[in-house]
């Protein structure tokens, strides 16, 4: 039973790490802000979810496990909100007054 749980942890965390890697590759390779945000938020939410899922059998219940789930939920909330705000900032001209431009060469 312990072996099966350890195996589950290893697989879930590895999958999560792959999602993080995919998100990072997307952040570096995608052409514009909106697609980069898409790669970052989706992959990170899933990646962190899988890592939390993998860690659940390894922590003491109920306090440790509930803390991990709470961390994941708060990151979901923060990630989704920041993604929305950044997308809005990238699309609207109203924020141009506060963007920092590169100096002309």
């Amino acid at each position: 039973m312990t072996l099966a749980l350890t195996l589950f942890t290893l697989i879930a965390i590895s999958l999560g790490a792959i999602f993080f890697l995919a998100g990072t590759v997307g952040l570096l390779r995608f052409p514009d802000t909106l697609t980069r945000l898409h790669a970052l938020t989706k992959a990170d939410n899933l990646g962190l979810g899988l890592i939390v899922l993998g860690l659940l059998p390894q922590v003491d219940w109920p306090v440790g496990g509930l803390k991990l789930i709470a961390v994941w939920l708060v990151v979901l909330l923060a990630g989704a909100t920041v993604g929305q705000l950044m997308a809005k900032a990238a699309r609207s001209d109203a924020w141009n007054g506060s963007t920092d431009l590169e100096p002309p060469r």
Binding site: A70, V74, L77, A78, A80, T81, Q84, L85, K88
Partner: peptide
């Protein structure tokens, strides 16, 4: 009415 409003309503209790 933006996403920030929702965050500022949900997060402070936590």
């Amino acid at each position: 009415g933006s996403a920030l409003t929702l965050l500022a309503q949900l997060l402070p209790p936590i």
